[in-house]
Design a binder for these strands. Structure first.
Lengths: 185, 185
DNA sequence: TCCTCCATGTAATCTGTTACATGATTCT
DNA sequence: AGAATCATGTAACAGATTACATGGAGGA
């Protein structure tokens, strides 16, 4: 049940329409909670019916932009959710599974796939690092930005892990690594 | 579409019945691809209908154990799947989302949740390390076990990342860290 | 006018989760 | 016989994915 809260968070940061949300999910928030526009529209409908958000007046017609803002009940619900307990997400990654399957049926074709992923994770890591330099320069690490920075550093840590692990996996599959380093100093 | 291939892999390693698979999924394979027994039964039915596995003769009655083995077509399908391309799983973690939401509505109650997760990840990490010592001692790192070892090291790397990040998150939320180290030398 | 893009949505399907139902075996 | 346990399933639903449908606005 995280999607509604992801949406509430995004709307609190800035009232938006459905498509705007979908696009913002492709950036910041979507980095750790992705959603398609269909999911978002459905959820916006539910949140409105539940009285947690409301559409801003004007433009009730189809094909017209429709902006939503969070109501006090919505903010309260989000605040309560932050304190909720939940089990950590079990890992569920097809690539790890492919490695395991390859141990049984052979590694044919796997090296290329690993290399693809390695490339993608390196790009993502570079993107995060760029965001960090831009939004969180060492001098003004304000207290309020602290949490956002930690979240970003989570993304950086994950991508760093993947690039290192994939490099290790590539040698295990019997391929030379080549290319530049893993992006770490 | 990973579950059927997880099952094929498990069945190739050892022909099993539905519940045995479910239990094995709670161990090794489930560490990176979990599944309930209901999912497994449903999928076993599909795989059998597709001619990729078959039930071993004997015991066709309800409430009787029913073992499955992989047919040649099944092995071929798994082999083909290993070489398939797939996008990396986008990260989707409620705790990262909670941190982000906390940046907007406040961190009340969040520290305890972080501490809980930190504890769970430390346990998991210790478990993986124990398995590594038991199953992959430095002396006999055979070529065939290499892939399995890399997969396990993936789990270790992920849990290491989480323990480190959660420790960082805890200080950002304004709580002292305390307790022992993060498990790394 | 036609085409494209933006925006909002519906529908069908698949996956995952939770709860329940039923038969067989073993132990007391 | 009764209870506990093992084992195989069904049913109902929530969440996610993919494909498609509709309407408005702007430009060629």
């Amino acid at each position: 049940m995280s999607l509604p809260h992801a949406i509430l968070t995004a709307l609190l940061e800035k009232p938006s329409s459905g498509l705007e949300l979908a696009r913002r999910f492709d950036k910041s928030i979507g980095y750790f909670w992705s959603a398609t526009h269909q999911q978002i529209y459905r959820e916006l409908g539910r949140l409105e019916k539940a009285g947690l958000i409301r559409a801003l007046p004007a433009a009730p017609a189809r094909g017209q932009k429709k902006e939503y803002e969070v109501l006090p009940d919505g903010r309260a619900a989000l605040s309560a959710w932050v304190a909720e307990a939940g089990a950590p997400r079990p890992v569920r990654d097809p690539l790890l599974l492919r490695m395991r399957a390859a141990a049984v049926v052979g590694t044919a074709g796997l090296a290329e796939e690993i290399r693809r992923h390695l490339d993608l994770h390196r790009r993502q890591l570079a993107e995060y690092r760029a965001i960090e330099e831009r939004d969180f320069p060492p001098e003004r690490d304000s207290a309020e930005d602290r949490l956002r920075h930690v979240v970003l550093r989570g993304g950086i840590g994950l991508e760093t892990f993947w690039t290192e692990w994939l490099t290790e996996a590539l040698t295990a599959v019997g391929e030379p690594v080549g290319e530049q380093g893993n992006g770490r100093a």
